[in-house]
């Protein structure tokens, strides 16, 4: 049960999409090989691979429909990881109940808690607002927690239309970045990906 929960939590539409991409790309590669070589076995394989196209399209449609959902409520038990430092991902999280810890992971493998957040607080906005940054810290549920996962597009709409909201986020983000820099004893900008262990 646990691995299934692990799989459907977090950014699973991205994983389903990746599966669809792998399937359809495989068929395309086999298809090119088939029509270029006209080898009977590759043609046969191409014929069989048509099934993958159908599966891939269905997976894409599922992802496309679910991506329209702006907000999903997820449940984490104490000790579970919401995301890890260095992961890609652009969702923003708002805590409904429970407490989470923001952990800066260090090169030596240890981690330092840079903040604790509770109901009403949010996290995950740095990766979204500073384009193409990976996750800057690991977030772990300290107690059982219910957390809203908000899609980037929904979040960006708010961000673009409400200047007060923008200012508020900037104020919230700054102390985290400062603490991170202190922990890693590096410059504040730019923040690199997770250091190799």
């Amino acid at each position: 049960m646990a691995p299934i929960q692990e799989l459907i939590r977090g950014d699973w539409p991205a994983r389903v999409l990746a599966a669809a991409q792998v399937m359809i790309a495989t068929v395309a590669v086999v298809g090119i090989a088939a029509v270029v070589t006209l080898n009977p076995y590759i043609l046969l394989g191409f014929g069989a691979a048509q099934g993958l196209i159908v599966i891939g399209i269905v997976l894409f449609v599922i992802v496309a429909m679910l991506s329209q959902r702006a907000m999903v409520l997820e449940e984490f038990s104490a000790g579970q990881i919401v995301f890890r430092q260095g992961d890609p991902g652009h969702h923003v999280y708002v805590i409904r109940s429970g407490t989470v810890e923001l952990i800066a992971e260090k090169a030596d493998g240890g981690g330092e808690i840079i903040d604790r957040l509770g109901p009403g607080d949010h996290f995950g906005d740095i990766a979204l607002l500073r384009r193409n940054l990976p996750r800057q810290f690991t977030v772990k549920a300290a107690t059982q927690a219910h957390i809203f996962r908000i899609s980037p597009s929904g979040f960006v709409q708010l961000y673009a239309s409400l200047p007060e909201f923008r200012e508020y986020l900037r104020q919230r983000e700054e102390p985290h970045l400062r603490r991170l820099a202190a922990v890693r004893k590096g410059p504040t900008q730019p923040l690199g990906p997770k250091p190799p262990k």
């Binding site: 999409l17 890609p88 652009h90 980037p152």
Partner: peptide, 13 residues
């Protein structure tokens, strides 16, 4: 990269 399920990426998909 990293936001394959968002916004305009879906049109490309």
């Amino acid at each position: 990269r990293g936001r394959q399920t968002e916004g305009n990426a879906l049109w490309l998909h």
